[in-house]
Design a protein around this nucleic acid. Structure first.
Length: 569
RNA sequence: GGCGGUGUAGCUCAGUUGGUUAGAGCAGCGGAAUCAUAAUCCGCGUGUCCGGGGUUCAAGUCCCUGCACCGCCA
């Protein structure tokens, strides 16, 4: 049995994610996980919240809560939303877990033992009133270049000039507004990625068939300018994983934590360990090639902004450890989803956020639209007009109506059982041939994680059913040859079950409703279309389901377009 | 400023390693059917493939250059 390890980029703890974030990693990862399971793979699908760092601390402070409490609450919020979108994680972990503490410290210790860690001293701005060092962008002041009063320590938003925090006139902390800032020396650990440049380069060259987007980004970072830069992996913060060398203290690094980008990807492994601790499973057989993971295929999903960390930083950690860790085999990166001519904006509340989306429509609507229009080769655009017409057409008209017309016709002519009689002929053979070919196409695209193409292939299968029905015209044959009509409609009823099975990765709820209506639990992936279309035998009872997808009206569309146009607090 | 991406039918986008008359879905127009959520099915596209050079027997597909939009970085 093939074994597939799947991870989705882990969403930051701070706030609810929008649809662009969702379609960038979690949703396509879920599609693939569901597909692999349906094809009989042993699947481990891991996601988590990314909880460390300054933004989390500040968000907690704003909410008036201890950061640990804030994170625990927001984890639950994100978990519930993930459930709402039917994201089928085997485990949804937390980067703040004890497992991740242990593993992160372990990796740091190994990297140090391999001579890949440097201690370097630098100067950073310290806020006496806040009792902490401030990252550059949390310092504001007057721009020395243009006089803009709210320039940040890294750059002036008004004139665009790049700044050093010490350039600012009358600098202040954005955390507290304090002005008693001073420059202090501080020591940090650096991962010597530059030492691993050639190994990483080779490793990337050895990968087959990665998307151009992925390799071009990685190659750029490897070869651009002075090449791959060493990276600071610690910070002067309270909230995070304490710097330790494995189980031992790290002299001189007391009170410091690992940088969020060092510990976040390690949470993929730690999340699996969390799963193991919760279920009694074995996480090492997914991650250690010396302990059973050598036959695992590991696939990662992420937005394009995360590519450097997954092609370089995280592999540097794994390879640099000198231990036989499983590295990614295929990395699926996605572009951005834009919202109606601009970007989604968390701060301005522009666009649709996960909670709002579920508020407005069932998850299948979103899953289908986002996946079937996934931003694979370029950024893509969400508009309410497109969403309405696409969803109404694909889901309500083509698939939903097929289920309706078949079940209702059968009920009125034969009752709510699969009718018997009649003999399939050439049109039925042609349909099966066409479906077999279409199924192969669908599988090929899904195997390759070509999401839009897979959605198109699936839709084509739905269309094939409508075309068959149109040509077969059981409403017409029923008048003269009722047995022939019975055969035709029996085939059509079986098509509903087949569609449920094949569509399930995209629209799990609707698929479950279809199976329920067909009165069957047989959801096995079809090896043979002909056999799959004979599962529901004559005499088998079914029910006419509720309308699977009601249509989005113009009034709804207009209301939503207005509601989500922007300015949420 | 540096880097990367994008620019293909009204709209959203496909177009493999350059190779027959450039495609899909939606929208639009015409028709068939009436089982169905007025849903379905069939037919219909003379597009400067952003502009300009170049390489080639052959370029949307490679090279140079210009323009436009987007993003990232310092």
């Amino acid at each position: 049995m093939p074994r597939t390890l799947i991870t989705s980029a882990i969403p930051y703890i701070n706030g609810i994610k929008h649809l662009g974030n969702l379609v960038g990693s979690q949703l396509p990862a879920d599609l693939y996980a569901r597909y692999c399971r349906a094809r009989g793979h042993e699947v481990m699908f891991i996601c988590a919240t990314d909880e460390h760092g300054t933004p989390a601390e500040l968000a907690a402070a704003k909410a008036g809560k201890p950061v640990a409490e804030y994170c625990a609450e927001m984890w639950q919020v994100q978990k519930d939303l993930a459930d709402g979108f039917r994201l089928s994680f085997d485990h949804f972990g937390r980067s703040s877990s004890p497992q991740n503490h242990r593993l992160t410290q372990h990796f740091a210790g190994r990297l140090d033992a391999a001579g890949l860690i440097d201690e370097r001293t630098s100067e950073q701005v310290y806020s006496v009133a806040d009792g902490r060092f401030l990252p550059d962008r949390y310092i504001e002041g007057t721009c020395p270049n243009c006089g803009f009063e709210d320039a940040r320590g890294d750059q002036c938003d008004n004139c665009g000039k790049l700044l050093d925090p010490t350039d600012l006139i009358e600098p202040r902390s954005t955390v507290s507004g304090a002005t008693d800032l001073e420059v202090r020396e501080t020591k940090h650990l650096f991962l010597r990625q530059s030492q691993l440049k050639d190994r990483l380069d080779q490793w990337i060259d050895s990968q087959e068939g990665w998307p151009v987007l992925t390799t071009s980004i990685a190659k750029k970072w490897l070869h651009d300018g002075d090449g791959l830069q060493d990276r600071g992996i610690t910070r002067d913060l309270d909230w995070g994983i304490p710097v330790r060398k494995g189980d031992a203290p790290w002299p001189g690094m007391e009170g410091k934590v690992f940088y969020v980008w060092f510990d976040a990807p390690i949470e993929y492994i730690a999340g699996t360990a969390e799963w193991a601790d919760a279920t009694g499973g074995d996480w090492e057989r997914w991650w250690r090639t010396d302990k059973g993971a050598d036959d695992v295929r590991y696939v990662q999903f992420m937005g394009k902004d995360n590519v450097p960390f997954h092609t370089l930083s995280f592999p540097a950690t794994l390879l640099g450890s000198g231990e036989p860790w499983k590295t990614v085999d295929y990395l699926k990166s996605l572009n951005y989803l834009n919202y109606d001519g601009g970007q989604f904006s968390t701060s301005r509340g522009r666009g649709v956020f996960m909670d709002q989306a579920l508020d407005v429509l069932p998850s299948d609507y979103w899953r289908w639209w986002l996946l079937s229009r996934a931003p694979e080769s370029s950024d893509t655009e969400f508009t309410w007009e497109a969403f309405q017409t696409d969803v109404n057409k694909d889901l309500a008209d083509v698939l939903g109506n097929f289920v309706s017309r078949v079940t209702k016709f059968c009920r009125s002519k034969f009752g709510e059982t699969v009718p018997e009689g009649g003999t399939p002929g050439a049109p039925e053979a042609a349909l099966i041939a066409r479906l077999s070919e279409g199924l192969a196409t669908y599988e090929r695209h899904m195997d390759a994680i070509e999401i839009r193409k897979a959605a198109g292939a699936l839709r084509a299968l739905w269309v094939a059913g409508n075309e068959y029905l149109q040509d077969a015209a059981p409403w017409s044959t029923f008048k003269t040859e009722p047995e022939h009509a019975a055969m035709q409609i029996r085939l059509a009823l079986n098509l509903i079950r087949l569609y449920a099975v094949l569509s399930r990765p995209f629209i799990p709820d609707a698929a479950a409703a279809m199976l329920r209506a067909m009165g069957t639990e047989d959801d096995g992936w079809p090896d043979d279309v002909s056999a799959a279309l004979a599962v529901l035998a004559p005499g088998h009872a079914f029910e006419v389901p509720e309308v699977l997808f009601s249509k989005i009206t113009d009034a709804q569309r207009e209301e939503w377009a207005t509601r989500f146009a922007g300015k949420r607090e």
